[in-house]
Design a protein around this nucleic acid. Structure first.
Lengths: 247, 247
DNA sequence: GGAATAGTGTCTTTGAGACACTATAAA
DNA sequence: TTTATAGTGTCTCAAAGACACTATTCC
């Protein structure tokens, strides 16, 4: 903390960026915008912006951005701070310190171009990681950090449900794990495990047969936030992403 | 990220603060400084300071501060970003966004008043948490976050060894867990578990009898960084801190 | 009927936790 | 000797993983 006697301190621009993840169309997706101006014009970037005023709390700024981008009240979405990126050469225009947040949201109807007329759209994380798709600033690194955080958090929290709609089946929840982690889970063991966690799932009493088989029971999220014991993803080396689509 | 056309952005002061934890004298300790100036004169605060120049990377600034405070090369110490605190009223002098880092260090010979002549000293975390000891700014919250992060990380990483000297016994490592988590572990089960993690402990071949019983084998840290499977602290409700001193 | 998904049960293996027992030092 | 700590082994229970089987839908 400040020990200096003089209040002559270098000040820098502070931005808030969002890594908004969802699961849709059998893929982990991230909401990205195509930059309309230099630098990195036309490249993909995380939605975000500078803090609106001298008096805006950073967390509040992130929640505001999230609401703008998703069109939903941020209160019902999961939002947590990811990390702050403060390299001196992140932005060619000058020194910018970016506080990044991670949001896990259900499959929203439309990314909703939002208040800004920016072309926000879902991109498959796999495509952003693999291809030479141009990504602005150090955002490719940030995206990788966000995805890794999300993958880890599914292990010991109930956040997988944040990717699901208000009511969901156990299979849908399992698909979230499988898609985020990139490998299949035994549906019978998953069912036993997940229904054994007190407070995770609350049955609604309804059923659905949206997938053509026997109708599945519908659940809502319960009050539990931590999974104890956790569901550990296999830390095995042969964890090919292709397993997602390989039966 | 910046979408604005104008480069007229509110700039704020950015500081870097450190939560430097160690285990010494059977207690989890944190390095704190007594503030010499207003605001919060005479109160305890985290060591830190504003970024030195427009061009200093935030991570580098943290490493520099850590080296200054500990007198050791930061390269050999564990340092990770904790969180950024950006409330508008954190500092009565004006808007200050603080990027906080967590360091886990062995029991250093002296806190080493360092380049600054500030009175840095170890404080037992328990005292800082419990008593009405005056703590400046929102640093009590930050300390709580740092301690919780450290407690959690011991579960699934090998970072407990960061609290130990270069060579240590299994009992000393176990004491780290016990002190940080606040409850006893069965020494036999701990021995079996910890020696079963590939790459965690490398025997030096030497022994020591500093504790008066049968001489214990000495180990160094191995290359492993993650513990799989993790050592889960009991998430039971009856997790009294007094268990540390109760046999 | 066949195909697909939902849900239950069973067996095996692994690991956590409790704890007996032996080994080697100091006082 | 007593006391303290180091280290090994053993038993039990809980949970993970593999997988058989039944249930209920759509085609």
């Amino acid at each position: 903390m400040p020990q200096d006697t003089t209040w002559q301190i270098p000040k820098v621009a502070v931005a808030v960026d969002l890594a908004i993840l969802t699961v849709r169309e059998e893929r982990l997706n991230i909401l990205l915008v195509e930059r309309a101006e230099e630098p990195y014009r036309g490249q993909l970037a995380l939605p975000g912006g500078f803090i609106a005023s001298e008096d805006e709390d950073i967390d509040v700024a992130a929640a505001r951005e999230l609401a703008e981008e998703t069109g939903l009240a941020a209160g019902r979405l999961h939002l947590e701070q990811l990390r702050t990126y403060g390299g001196p050469d992140r932005d060619p225009r000058g020194r910018v310190v970016t506080v990044c947040y991670l949001a896990l949201v259900p499959d929203l109807p439309i990314p909703s171009a939002g208040g800004d007329a920016r072309a926000a759209r879902w991109e498959a994380v796999r495509d952003v990681e693999r291809t030479d798709a141009p990504v602005a600033f150090d955002h490719r690194t940030i995206i990788a950090d966000a995805v890794e955080r999300a993958r880890g958090k599914l292990e010991y929290t109930t956040l997988a449900a944040a990717f699901c709609p208000a009511e969901f089946t156990i299979s849908e929840l399992r698909r979230v794990y499988e898609i985020v982690w990139g490998h299949r889970l035994d549906h019978r063991n998953f069912h036993r495990k997940i229904t054994g966690v007190a407070g995770f799932l609350v049955p609604t009493g309804d059923r659905t047969a949206r997938d053509g088989g026997r109708p599945a029971a519908l659940y809502r999220r319960g009050p539990a936030t931590v999974l104890h014991p956790p569901i550990l993803r296999g830390h095995d080396p042969n964890d090919a992403e292709s397993e997602t689509t390989t039966p």
